[in-house]
C-alpha cells in the first residue's frame, strides 16, 4: 500500500515536469467546460436527495427516482463534457445529513430544485445546438421534480 502510494507520487512529477518543451502546453489543464457547474449541481442535487432519504426513509418512495434522475443527468453531462467520470469520493464527499425536520428538508430540496431548474434553463439558452436538447430535458426534469418534492 505504502509502496503503491510512493510509486504513484513519484510518477506525477515526471509526467508533469515538462522535460520536453513541446509537451508543456499539453500538461496544462484544458479550460473548464461551460457545463462544468451544471454537472457539479447535478451531483450536489443527487447527494442532497440521497441524504434526505437516509435521514427520512419515509421519503424514499418519492425521492429515490428524483435522486436517480440527477445521477443520470450527471452521467449524460459527463459524456458531452468529455470529462473523466466523477469519482465516487467526489460525489459522496458532500452529503451532510439534513439539519432540520422532514418538512424543512423538503423545503430545502424544493429551493435547490428551483435554483437548478433556472441554471439548466440558462445553460440550454446559451448552449450550442448539439447540447440544447439534453439541457432542455434536464431543465424540464427539474421542473417536474417540484411536482413530487413537496
Amino acid at each position: 500500500m505504502l509502496a503503491a502510494a510512493v510509486g504513484a507520487a513519484a510518477l506525477y512529477p515526471i509526467a508533469g515536469c515538462g522535460l520536453f518543451g513541446d509537451e508543456e502546453d499539453k500538461s496544462q489543464p484544458p479550460a473548464p467546460d461551460p457545463l462544468a457547474p451544471l454537472l457539479a449541481e447535478a451531483l450536489s442535487l443527487a447527494s442532497q436527495h440521497e441524504a434526505a432519504i437516509a435521514a427520512f426513509p419515509a421519503l424514499a418512495e418519492r425521492l429515490t427516482p428524483v435522486a436517480a434522475a440527477h445521477r443520470e443527468h450527471a452521467t449524460a453531462l459527463t459524456k458531452v463534457i468529455k470529462a473523466p467520470a466523477p469519482s465516487a469520493s467526489a460525489s459522496s464527499a458532500s452529503p451532510a445529513p439534513p439539519s432540520g425536520d422532514e418538512k424543512s428538508t423538503l423545503g430545502a430540496l424544493r429551493s435547490a430544485e428551483q435554483k437548478g431548474q433556472k441554471s439548466a434553463a440558462q445553460a440550454c439558452q446559451a448552449a450550442a445546438a448539439e447540447r440544447a436538447a439534453l439541457l432542455g430535458s434536464i431543465a424540464a426534469a427539474r421542473a417536474t421534480h417540484l411536482e413530487v418534492v413537496r
Binding site: A68, E72, L134, S137, A141, T144, H145, V148
Partner: peptide, 16 residues
Amino acid sequence: RRRAGVSPATVPFPGR
C-alpha cells in the same frame, strides 16, 4: 401520471 397513480410520476429526460 400522479392522477393516474403511475409511479414514478417523473422521467429522467422529458421529451427524449
